[in-house]
Amino acid sequence: MHIVVCIKQVPDSAQIRVHPVTNTIMRQGVPTIINPYDLFALEEALRLRGAHGGEVTVLTMGPPMAEDALRKALTYGADRAVLLTDRCFAGSDTLATSFALSRAIVRIGETFGAPDIVFAGKQTIDGDTAQVGPGIAKRLGLLQFTYVAKIASIDLDAREITVKRRSEGGMQMLKSRLPCLITMLEGTNEIRRGSLDDALRAARSQIVKWSAAEAGIEDLTKCGLRGSPTVVKRVFAPTTRAEKATQIDMTDKTQHGVADELIAAIFTRQPALEHELAFDGGQ
């Protein structure tokens, strides 16, 4: 089977800094990583390849430096990497991104064989929208399963798939058909460590690089800023509240004394809480 995994290179959000004056992102020295949620999708794809044979192609859209993320994906064991990179993609929102990626997946299908499953992470850590996966599915007319916790079974001959999907308050068991798009839930597996062969192959692989034209995208009005219905009007830092926390002084007091003082302060500010606590709270 042929599996396409969509990944994204993201800045490690723990290390992002904001310029205190201009409120712009200071990118200097911020390392980039594969969006952590995408690794669950990649590992699931590699497991399916192990069970059913076939190939795993990783795809990303981004600047030329996104090649690092793809190479890393190859180190984990993916067979092929495609980088969709073109200045015309700059400023894409979720709709424009899903358009470009879906075109690239069509081209991947034409070039390397039609995919049976397209995987994506459940969301990215920089955008957090969780909308590109569903967007790709709709564009390609694929059946869509988001927040999948487990792929219970795949029958390649009958083209059938059964998945366990997280929903509010429970797990749905769904039976459907291939081809489909799956976004994997976090914590469902653990990314493998590629072998020395994988690492050597990854270091030497040619990454397939496609411009918009090479990916078969002719209608540039659907790409980048022009193809994005949403427009970012303003970026700003959250306003700070005028007053800071009222500090309960610790000097010359025991921890127990301060605890009593704090409880008194809580009940002064939220009188209703005391009754609720007395009746509902405790053991």
Binding site: R193, G194, S195, L196, D197, D198, A199
Partner: peptide, 9 residues
């Protein structure tokens, strides 16, 4: 030898 499966080189 490395800590990855396979090898030595």
């Amino acid at each position: 030898r490395t800590d990855r499966a396979g090898g030595p080189i």
